[in-house]
Nucleic acid binder design. Structure first.
Ligand SMILES: NC(=O)c1ccc[n+]([C@@H]2O[C@H](COP(=O)([O-])OP(=O)(O)OC[C@H]3O[C@@H](n4cnc5c(N)ncnc54)[C@H](O)[C@@H]3O)[C@@H](O)[C@H]2O)c1
Ligand SMILES: NC(=O)c1ccc[n+]([C@@H]2O[C@H](COP(=O)([O-])OP(=O)(O)OC[C@H]3O[C@@H](n4cnc5c(N)ncnc54)[C@H](O)[C@@H]3O)[C@@H](O)[C@H]2O)c1
Lengths: 218, 218
DNA sequence: ATCATGATGTTATAATAAACACAAAATATA
DNA sequence: TATATTTTGTGTTTATTATAACATCATGAT
């Protein structure tokens, strides 16, 4: 019997593949900017450092975007990857914790350009409430659930201290957020099907430190 | 013949293992705070989500820290992991690009607590030069090389726009920095033996977006 | 002191991911 | 139009990573 039946699980594309996609997307964007509209896996390999074979295999998880003897059309592939990454639609987001990092993210125009619109910041510090970062208002965290429900907010960003992160994540879920982008250095304990992406700045710095120690401090 | 001869390369611990170490370290720190001083790989497994087998295997890359029939001494293991990660010594760092992210990092006390001391920020914008974030001064980027040489700066942090990141990385190397922590969304083209750790905020958000699309937007 | 238990360190096995290799198909060329 | 060249898509092989198994030994109860 042929393997014509696949469960969802078997079908799932591995996270290692998915984490390479944004890099492909970035390089294709660069090529697009340069007006280059044809690229081979071999050339992409030189640019990205991945093997040509791996690039082809990765892309073929999502469909045959290339043409034998020709390569890939940059604009088309860029567009397809954008769709795969969900960058073809606009997401509403909010940030809880309007401190250093929360304000930095709110101030960053790059996310808006990519379709992620920060509608509001939330904080519990009365001194911050009412202030604006660009045109984004900082509101009382007590009004957050209502705001999320009223404004179709899909992404909740956590830039609060570690101690309040779990509670705020649960608040996000209660409010109906679909995904959480967490900057607090803790593992959120949430339903398995909840989409959470963690940013681990401390761990990243520790990795750098590990290699410094390994190289210089033996 | 026994495999008693190993090249450096064979000896090297894989990056997948290394990236788990900070998480172990964090959980052990939490246990320490709670006054728990004994832990088994099984209990660590429950906490971290990694299998007990993997935890034991990971740790044994660096030495036999546990005791059969007992488990691991939390304080000892935490200390050992700290040493492995280079957190037992203090590193001097500087930041180039005193914008949103650069200032946020400079303001963050957590890094100092972990032994990473930000000595200065650098920028090319005259309006920023002379300002202070906490007690950290923003200086003219033209004075950066001298400052690094005079102050034993080992870590260079890049929070400048993408366009200037490559040039600034080269400046860091010229000045003698040992490792670069890069927040600009580009791949730095540097000597192979240079230690670089990238923080890819855009890519992280795109991954979140991917899973949102996969789950809701089929 | 003895012995059952618990938990490590380490080897063996399984699963996953990456690299290789090449037929097939399209392109470019003459 | 015929043909040499290019380059994909994909089956196969190899390498890497994770899990399971287990022999060994310290612990703690009796
Ligand atoms: N800034 C960095 O460079 C950095 C680096 C690594 C990790 N982090 C992590 O990112 C998170 C944010 O860091 P930061 O430097 O922006 O901190 P910050 O202290 O500047 O900001 C935290 C904000 O959260 C608010 N807050 C606290 N509890 C709240 C609650 N229950 N509801 C709503 N708001 C609340 C505070 O009022 C404050 O404004 C922290 O978890 C920190 O550990 C930051
Ligand atoms: N802020 C975010 O949330 C965020 C998210 C994703 C990526 N990033 C990346 O992080 C980097 C910093 O982002 P940001 O929001 O802090 O930007 P920003 O514009 O607030 O700050 C950049 C700073 O770099 C300075 N600068 C520019 N060229 C310089 C040079 N040659 N020498 C010295 N200083 C120079 C500018 O004067 C400015 O102060 C960017 O590469 C950005 O793409 C930021």
């Amino acid at each position: 019997m042929d393997k014509d039946y696949r469960t969802d699980k078997e079908n799932k594309i591995s996270i290692t593949v998915i984490r390479r996609l944004p890099k492909y997307y970035r390089y294709l964007g660069d090529l697009l900017d340069k007006g280059i509209n044809r690229i081979s896996s071999q050339e992409l390999s030189k640019m990205t450092g991945f093997t040509a074979s791996q690039i082809r295999q990765d892309l073929n998880n999502f469909g045959g975007f290339g043409q034998q003897g020709y390569g890939y059309n940059v604009e088309e592939l860029h567009g397809e990857l954008g769709k795969i990454l969900g960058l073809d639609s606009v997401y509403n987001a909010v940030i809880v914790g309007a401190g250093n990092l929360g304000q930095a993210i709110a101030n960053y125009k790059g996310f808006e350009d990519a379709g992620f619109k920060v509608l509001s910041l939330f904080d519990k510090n009365p001194k911050l409430i009412g202030l604006r970062i660009r045109d984004i208002e900082i509101r009382d965290v007590d009004t957050m659930v209502d705001f999320i429900k009223e404004n179709d907010v899909e992404i909740g960003i956590i830039t609060s201290p570690r101690e309040s992160a779990q509670e705020l994540a649960e608040t996000y879920i209660e409010a109906g957020v679909k995904g959480i982008w967490n900057f607090a250095p803790t593992d959120l304990d949430l339903p398995d099907d909840m989409i959470v992406e963690n940013v681990r700045l401390n761990e990243s710095l520790f990795i750098l430190s590990y290699f410094l120690k390994e190289k210089y401090n033996r």
